[in-house]
Design a binder for these strands. Sequence first.
DNA 1: CTTAGGG
DNA 2: CCCTAAG
Length: 707
Amino acid sequence: MVVKKRQYYGFNGFHMPPVPRAPRSARGRGLNKMKVEDSQICAFELLASLAGKLLQESESSASSNASEANDQPIIGGGVKFEQDDDRPLKAECLDHGSCGESALFTRFSSPNSDQKCLLNEFPHAESNLFLERSSMITNSNSSKNGGADLKSVICKSKSACENIPGKVEGSSDSRVSCDGYVDNGLSRQKRCDGLDTRGLIVDPCSSNDPMEMCMKFPALINSVNNVELPSCRDPVPSASIPRHRNGTKLGIRDDDENFTRCNKPLTKSKAFRPPQRIGDRRIRKLLTSKYWKVAPKLKDCEFSKPAFLEGGAKSHYLKRKLCYSRERYQLNTFYKRRKFTDHSVVVTSDGGFSSESVCNSPDKNMTGDKNGASIMFHDAANGVSSSVIGHQASFHSKDSQVKFSIKSFRVPELLIEVPETATVGSLKRTVVEAVSAILGGGLRVGVLLHGKKVRDDNRTLLQTGITSNENLDTLGFSLEPTPVQVSPPLCTEDPAALLPCDTSQLILRSPTTPIVDSGVSDALPDPPPLTNLDTNIESNRESVSSHADIVTDNTLPDSRALVAVPPVNAEELAMVPLNQKSKRSELVQRRTRRPFSVSEVEALVHAVEELGTGRWRDVKLCSFEDADHRTYVDLKDKWKTLVHTAQIAPQQRRGEPVPQELLDRVLAAHAYWSQHQAKQHSKNQTAILKITDAHAVRNGVQDIQSI
DNA sequence: CTTAGGG
DNA sequence: CCCTAAG
């Protein structure tokens, strides 16, 4: 049984179709408590990302900077730009690789099938991504159609992946669909001219230090994809590369990001991609967050049109969901495929970056080992490299090995300002970009031990206290934006966008809404100081969900224009989080806490004694008519807590003590109404009598007056 | 909008 | 308190 919880917290796993709740009457606490353990998937993902990073670095340092540039496109990771919001059914999987593949596949197999949409859309999506990034670097000639030189780059790593040429496949409509995007990219470029990097893009010239350069790039994402996804999965699909018309070489990652279309996809051929990328999560979260109340409630694969999707815009969430449902079926397939190949094809722009694509994990680890790719990466700052092994991987230290299992990364808060005039599509793009910026802005990994950052990279794990004996729960990894990096504006005309935005925090801010404060810091129980993205080993995934999300007023329809507000950098954020006010303000305001006074409790108890526990509205009307701040829900909640309070030991109670007498009445009333399933009205009187009786009996007190 | 429950 | 699913 799938628990609803999964929907709240389940960023790590697959989404199972929601299970309808049992009738309320039948719903009892704990009924659906089983949880699906999917955290492992995350670990996997993380590993993958790390591995990718390592590879990338090691390779890139040797190769030209171009390689980095090339990778950029990939950075998008699970993020996909949706340019065409008008498109009715755009498949939106965050996973490009898969999508691309799928698209291709479709093309080959059944152009006319319903999967057609994929064809048209996906390739573009992918293209768009590239464009977005590439455009910054090279002037892509959007006008050039065609055949641009798409070169498929093959992984450098000498592994099985070697020499898997990608075929360039042009799609006739690519142009159309891409245009919007291209334009976008160009215009942005203009704006960004002069900027070294645009977060997503790496500027080879900006840094002299190879290492640093590497770091700037979102190796993570790329890596993730690479690692996770097998590159050449199918002879057919993987071999071909969607073509881009801008002279840019496109790289197709083979990640297996799950791509599933909303319409009946060909699941079978699709690769399965377990974990979601951080970006995805974030986005998903955004979409799912309360702020987006408008979001449709999708049931499985249905494509219902949510209010805010009316325009044709679709939420990633939605798609994601869809994807997931299918993905599950493909697990087996996925793994099988993985064995095949593990390289990625990268297209690079001719702009002068020659690329070496990154190929991670050649198969050594691949075979039979889903999780165990070991990756090495350098710490840009120190040039120290370390190898991290995910899940089943372990540190290869001479002596004992420490096993790390990183289950999830925490996603930083996003702060985004959206003008009301912005379109939903732009909002989406903004979010995507924001996420991409975070992911692609350059990340460094920090190590936290007992909540403190371990800065000395030269110390051994042993010296640092990270040993196999240690409780690794106290160990955490953090993803920090590279300080130096300045990311370009996230699509915006807003000057603010020009601020350096490394990424870390984007907050959706709705200008009109008052600011509330409950930001991440509040929300997180123990936010490790400096991290935007942090991961806790073996940590509960709930931490992720606990993050406050982006808030927006709610209705998308009036969506505000999107403007990503570039945050500073992780460390700064950590120390000087966006001012709490703003944080709060962005969030939907959380009402201030107003503890019930004894008198209120008394009134409540009395009302419940008379009305029972199923008529909160009446209770409200009856006893709290004037208390505007007490909603019937509040009363109901209070009653709930009262019952609980009454049942626990006095020592465990907190807050203003409630007279035992009242608590007793609470228990009595609770017991009574529990049995009499609130036989409404009528016998209130009797009920009361009974209750009081019970009470009296219980306490040997004379309470009858209370009647 | 109300309820009932879980978070 | 919040958020949601169900009515």
